[in-house]
């Protein structure tokens, strides 16, 4: 038997799998194209502002802004724009009570499930976005809009840590909101208002350092800055050294606080469901 013949079944499986993946992925690919467009549009607008305004308008340069915008697009699905539908439904309908029959810690189960799901969602898009923004853009002559590397080794390390914290923080925010649905019943409010707050407070509408200084300072201490703004500014070197470490500590602080709050709300909510009889 020749080698080619031996490998034939594997090749067949591989080809079938590839085709299947491709079919599933078209929608994702379209979404990816959309995000590239958004990134370009935002950069074009920002570039026009930098060219129009005085040179000393901000210490956050256009070179800072470019990676900031691309990272925001690349990591979009890591963040809590919407509540995880089936968890939200299980709380709304009270069917969550049946989860108590399982010998698990429900909060941890929710938490890691959501974290894994978001990571799996974000990873492929993130890789593609890096390829497009860092490799393809310079090739087509758009160097000044290309994603550049992190501001240094220390920045890279702290960035990875800050992004991991951002993911967990996002999950903790969602867990609090889902737990709140034991009381509010209607998830509509959270569904409509949450994305707006996250977009603005995280720095997706415009980078936080470009907001008026007072507003930027206040938003910088809220948990939403820990979702996007802090890791991105560490990456581009706008936050460094002791200040960067302080911001990482801020992320950790919010994470601990929100996890405790989420656990408390979940425990209270479950007790309520059990008493009401689901």
């Amino acid at each position: 038997m020749t080698l080619a013949l031996r490998l034939a079944p594997y090749r067949g499986v591989l080809r079938a799998r590839w085709r299947e993946t491709l079919q599933y992925r078209l929608a994702a690919l379209a979404g990816f194209g959309t995000q590239c467009y958004w990134g370009l549009l935002r950069l074009m607008i920002l570039a026009a502002f930098y060219q129009s305004g005085p040179a000393d308008a901000t210490d956050f340069s256009f070179a800072h802004a470019v990676p900031y915008v691309w990272l925001g697009q690349a990591l979009l699905s890591l963040f809590p724009f919407r509540l995880d539908a089936d968890l939200a439904d299980s709380v709304r309908t009270g069917s969550v009570a049946s989860e108590l029959l399982r010998p698990i810690d429900l909060y941890s189960y929710w938490f890691w499930r959501m974290a894994a799901w978001r990571l799996a969602q974000a990873a492929p898009r993130c890789l593609l976005m890096v390829v497009v923004a860092a490799v393809i853009l310079p090739l087509v002559g758009l160097d000044e809009w290309a994603l550049t590397g992190p501001a240094g080794g220390a920045a890279a390390g702290m960035y990875l840590l800050a992004t991991a914290l951002a993911l967990l923080l996002g999950v903790a925010v969602t867990a609090v909101l889902i737990s709140l649905m034991f009381w509010t019943v209607s998830s509509e409010g959270a569904r409509y208002i949450l994305p707006a707050i996250v977009w603005f407070g995280g720095g997706l509408v415009i980078p936080l350092p470009l907001l008026p200084d007072g507003l930027a300072a206040v938003l910088g201490y809220l948990p939403f800055a820990g979702l996007m703004d802090i890791p991105f500014r560490i990456y581009v070197g706008h936050l460094a050294g002791a200040e960067a470490l302080a911001r990482l500590a801020l992320q950790v602080g919010w994470l601990v606080l929100l996890v405790l709050l989420g656990r408390l709300l979940l425990a209270r909510g479950l007790r309520r469901v059990v008493i009401l009889g689901g």
């Binding site: 607008i45 502002f49 129009s52 005085p54 308008a57 977009w199 509408v205 470009l210």
Partner: peptide
């Protein structure tokens, strides 16, 4: 409203665009 807040913030900082 948040979209416009973004527009406002940029013009507040840079003064004008084109």
């Amino acid at each position: 409203a948040i979209e416009f807040a973004g527009v406002w913030a940029l013009l507040n900082r840079f003064g004008n665009v084109r």
